[in-house]
């Protein structure tokens, strides 16, 4: 994957995330009105195909976006180069995806 394709992937994932972030924050503000409980959250999300798709896509976009951004920081700030830098950022991306997917599965399944 070329630098240019990484650049496009990061921009496009940002485009996908923008409405997700707005809805995510909006629902957070709405959900904490009158207290916050795990039961209330799970009541909304469990068995919901909508929230599974919403947070599923969100997690995919975040993993792509953050891994590419951290790859740049690893190069410019930590001085990692070549395969080391690509490998570490790919691991970060996979790790974010694994953690996120697990969380989505836990609250929507």
């Amino acid at each position: 994957m070329s630098e240019f394709h990484l650049y496009m992937a990061q921009r496009l994932s940002a485009l996908v995330m923008a409405p997700f972030v707005i809805v995510h924050i909006g629902v957070m503000i709405y959900a904490i009105q009158g207290g916050l409980s795990a039961a209330e959250i799970l009541g909304r999300t469990q068995g919901s195909a909508f929230w599974f798709a919403f947070y599923g896509m969100f997690v995919v976009a975040v993993s792509i976006h953050a891994a590419i951004g951290l790859r740049t920081i690893l190069g410019e700030w930590a001085g990692l180069r070549g395969g080391m830098r690509d490998g570490v950022s790919a691991l970060i991306g996979l790790g974010l995806f694994a953690l996120g997917a697990q969380a989505v599965w836990a609250v929507t399944a």
Binding site: S2, E3, F4, L6, Y7, T72
Partner: peptide, 9 residues
């Protein structure tokens, strides 16, 4: 300008 270290950096 699209390669490694090009304008997208």
């Amino acid at each position: 300008v699209s390669g490694k270290g090009g304008c997208h950096s």
